Deep mutational scan, measured.
Amino acid sequence: DYFTVDMEKGAKGFGFSIRGGREYKMDLYVLRLAEDGPAIRNGRMRVGDQIIEINGESTRDMTHARAIELIKSGGRRVRLLLKR
């Protein structure tokens, strides 16, 4: 199942961390959800969800650093296409 999650940044960021990336020879996944962060309050994202797109850009062969950069580059908002 594919689904989109739109979030607005909180005081401590978006409230999730990721693992994976090209340099680890793996796809990008949601690693952790911060307690009471925007990701957990949104209610749609879960640990283990695969991140397919960040702000419309495919994560295929994307490095971990580039993924972080893209998440931050959207300013106060981020849109993720996830797969569960």
Rank of each mutant, 00 (worst) to 15 (best):
R41K: 11
S58G: 10
R79M: 07
D49V: 01
D27F: 05
M62D: 00
D36H: 10
G20V: 01
F14V: 09
L81C: 12
V5L: 09
A11P: 10
M26K: 12
F16S: 01
N42K: 07
H64V: 06
M7F: 03
L28K: 01
F16Y: 01
H64N: 14
Y2E: 04
A67L: 02
I40P: 07
L70C: 08
L70R: 11
I68R: 13
S73K: 13
M45V: 11
M26V: 08
S58L: 10
G15F: 00
L28P: 04
T63A: 11
D1N: 12
T4M: 04
E57R: 12
V47N: 15
T59K: 01
E35D: 13
K83F: 15
Q50Y: 08
F3E: 04
R44G: 12
K72A: 14
K72Y: 13
A67K: 00
G48I: 01
M62P: 00
I52E: 14
I71S: 02
Y24V: 13
R66C: 11
Y2V: 03
R66Y: 07
D6Q: 07
D49Y: 01
K12G: 12
A34S: 14
F3A: 03
E23P: 06
L33A: 04
R77L: 08
T4S: 03
D49L: 02
G56H: 09
M7A: 05
R79V: 10
L81G: 15
L31Y: 13
T59R: 00
I68C: 07
D36S: 09
R41D: 15
E8A: 07
L33E: 02
I54P: 00
A65W: 07
G21Y: 02
R41N: 13
V78D: 01
A34L: 13
R46V: 08
I40H: 14
K72W: 07
R84L: 02
R44F: 06
G75D: 14
V78A: 08
M26W: 03
F14I: 04
G37L: 09
D1G: 05
D27K: 08
K25P: 05
I71D: 00
S73C: 10
R77V: 09
I18K: 00
M45Y: 00
N42I: 09
R46G: 11
L80E: 01
R32G: 14
D61N: 08
R79L: 03
F3K: 08
G75R: 10
K83L: 14
R60P: 04
L31W: 12
E23D: 11
F14K: 02
A34R: 13
R22Y: 03
Q50D: 04
Y29K: 14
D1F: 04
I54Y: 00
H64E: 13
I40M: 12
M62E: 04
G15C: 02
I68Q: 12
T63Q: 08
D61Q: 06
I54D: 00
E53I: 04
G48H: 06
N55I: 01
G13D: 13
R32I: 05
R19L: 04
K83A: 15
D36T: 09
D27H: 05
T63N: 08
G43N: 05
A11H: 13
A34V: 12
E35Y: 12
V5C: 15
M26Y: 04
R79D: 07
I40K: 10
M45A: 04
G75C: 09
S58E: 12
K72G: 13
R79S: 13
N55A: 04
G37K: 06
I51Q: 00
A65R: 09
R77M: 12
I52P: 00
R76L: 13
T4F: 08
Y29R: 12
L70E: 15
I68P: 00
G10S: 11
S58W: 05
G56P: 00
D49G: 00
E35G: 10
K25A: 12
L33F: 08
K9M: 11
G75H: 11
G75W: 03
L82R: 00
F14L: 12
R76T: 14
E57D: 13
M62N: 02
D61Y: 06
L31V: 12
L70N: 09
R84H: 15
L70A: 10
G10F: 03
R46A: 10
V30N: 01
P38G: 08
R79N: 08
E53P: 00
S73F: 07
M26S: 13
N42A: 13
D6H: 05
R60N: 13
L33I: 15
D27W: 04
K25D: 10
E8N: 06
V30P: 00
R77Q: 10
G75I: 05
R22S: 12
I18T: 04
E8Q: 08
G10P: 07
K12H: 06
G43Q: 09
I71N: 00
E23S: 04
F3Y: 04
R60C: 10
M7S: 01
K9N: 05
S73H: 06
F14E: 03
R22A: 08
G10L: 03
G10E: 05
M7E: 04
M7G: 02
G21Q: 02
V78N: 03
G56M: 05
T4E: 05
G10W: 05
E35H: 09
G15R: 01
G15V: 01
V47L: 07
